[in-house]
Simulated assay, not measured.
Amino acid sequence: MSRPRAATLRDIDEAALALPEVTRDPASGGRPAYAVHGATFAFAREPRKDAHDPQTGEPYEDVLVFRCTAEDKEAMVGDPDSPWFTTPHWNGYNAVLLLERDLGRLTADEVREVVTDAWLVRAPKRLTRQHLESLQP
């Protein structure tokens, strides 16, 4: 039995762009943001002093942000072995953070699920209903 493949940035890109009515900014290359109907659901964040390396104090330069439900956030950041985290800046926001360098701790399937869930949180209800109905056999 083969081991699941570790996730990559390409998996995020492919998962996001496979969803209905998603735009990517910039269209290629760079540190992207993905949106549906103008609502961003996943993005690569610029360095900020609120997310920093505890060893060096330097701001992380590779933070990825994914929208989620409050329940999912609690479960994802509540596990001490999880690569997901949050910062005080994100208190009150339904989003989780992940360092690009920790992406390989997740499988491609796990990343696809998180990206899809992020899209479901931000997409218009009509569009989410249509998408979920299209997946039914």
Rank of each mutant, 00 (worst) to 15 (best):
F43P: 00
S82Q: 08
D72A: 15
P137L: 05
L17N: 05
Q130F: 14
N94C: 12
Y60L: 11
P80F: 15
E133D: 07
A7E: 01
D25I: 03
V115R: 02
E100P: 07
L135C: 04
A51P: 01
L17A: 09
F85Q: 01
P47Y: 14
L127G: 00
D81K: 13
A95T: 06
P4V: 12
R105M: 14
H131S: 00
D72M: 10
D11T: 08
E100Y: 08
N94T: 08
T40L: 03
A42K: 01
G29V: 02
A16W: 02
R101Y: 01
G92P: 07
T86V: 12
P4N: 08
S134C: 03
E113A: 15
D79W: 14
D79Q: 07
T8H: 06
D109L: 06
H131C: 06
A35D: 00
L64N: 03
E113V: 13
E74N: 09
A18K: 08
R105A: 08
H89W: 13
T86G: 15
A16G: 11
R67P: 00
K49C: 09
N94L: 05
T128V: 03
A70G: 14
D72G: 06
R101V: 04
V111M: 02
V96D: 01
A75T: 15
N91Y: 12
Y93A: 12
A95L: 10
V22M: 07
H52D: 05
D81Y: 14
A33D: 02
A75S: 11
T69K: 06
E110N: 08
A15W: 04
E133M: 04
D79C: 09
P59K: 02
T87V: 13
A33Y: 04
R126M: 04
W84G: 04
R24G: 02
D81H: 10
S82A: 10
A7Y: 03
P83F: 06
M1A: 02
A42C: 08
E71I: 13
V63Y: 02
D102W: 12
A108Q: 09
K49V: 12
E71T: 15
L9K: 14
P47H: 13
K73D: 15
F41L: 07
T40H: 03
S28Y: 01
V63T: 12
H37E: 10
L103S: 05
H89D: 09
L106A: 07
F43E: 04
D72E: 15
R126W: 01
L64R: 00
V77L: 13
R67M: 11
D79G: 13
V96C: 02
T56M: 12
A95V: 05
W90D: 04
W90R: 09
L135P: 04
